[in-house]
Design a protein around this nucleic acid. Structure first.
Lengths: 157, 157
DNA sequence: TCGAGGTAGATGATGCATCATCTAGGCCGC
DNA sequence: GCGGCCTAGATGATGCATCATCTACCTCGA
């Protein structure tokens, strides 16, 4: 409690650069996607998962696991996407509590139209300036932090 | 337009890990901060800037430059923080259009109380598992991407 | 077979982020 | 000294994220 170990200079700079980079990058990606195809980054991620699923159908809890979203966020988001006709809710035979989220034709059309521009933007703004080594390190770092987030789930913060 | 260069396996994994890591990390930081001190991460960042300022006062456009937030987001956020008594709006003598945002006593108390716990959480969840080399690379990567975001400001995405 | 506890998911309230737009004051050339 | 343009900032509407809570169904053991 008393002797807080503050961040040193290198840590502080790395942290701020990282936070700002992510913020500005996703803001840009969001705007590009929104402007060019009317989808948000969040819509896009949901649609990707459904596209990858065998028959374009997933249980909400599967989506939740894959996207690592909060349950409530997912549920609200699906409601909005349903309203826009991008997905449909169906009953689930195997589990009476559950639902099935199905990609609609319109949803499929939307992501097929959106994907090339989005990938190009990600490539141009992010990957193009990075070496393979940097990429590998970024992945190590991400995995390490994700592991800490998992194990430290019970601790105070 | 025709031959989209999709992400290869390494790129895809790095990208998803990065996005998920950031999302989960900030969610955790937000919750910790919120639970322990009633501040959001956004509140915290604003208060840090004001604390660093000579007399605890900054023009909104200075905050905007430092935080790299949208103007409108900042303005709305300051309104909410003002309502909660964390900052005050004052008139600006040098520029009749402008305002001055001042850290209140309550705002100062809030960040002084919040900082130790927040820094410890950042350290525990993020820095503790990383080497200095990884940190340096992370910073290089962030700066590189930030540079691309600046130069590519006019391009399509 | 019934009741306790767990899981799947929806929902209302609230604060946050973004967009479009608006006001007001500064600046500069004529 | 005024008309056009820029900059500083506020605001209303809308969609998004989170929290707390709720319902319905499943499961398993006594």
């Amino acid at each position: 409690m008393s002797g807080t170990r503050w961040l040193d200079d290198q840590e502080q700079r790395a942290w701020r650069a990282f936070i700002r980079m992510h913020g500005r990058l996703t803001a840009r990606l969001n705007r590009q996607l929104q402007a060019d195809s009317g989808l948000s980054l969040a819509d896009y991620e949901v649609l990707v998962q459904l596209t990858d699923a065998p028959d374009g159908r997933l249980r909400p809890f599967e989506l939740q696991r894959d996207l690592q979203w909060e349950q409530s966020r997912l549920s609200h988001h699906l409601t909005r996407m349903q309203r826009r006709g991008l997905v449909a809710r169906e009953e689930c035979d195997e589990d009476g509590r559950g639902a099935l989220i199905a990609l609609t034709d319109e949803g499929r059309r939307a992501i097929v139209a959106a994907a090339p521009g989005h990938v190009e933007t990600v490539r141009r703004l992010f990957f193009e300036g990075l070496t393979r080594d940097q990429l590998a390190t970024l992945r190590q770092v991400s995995d390490e932090v994700l592991a800490r987030l998992d194990t430290g789930a019970d601790l105070g913060g």
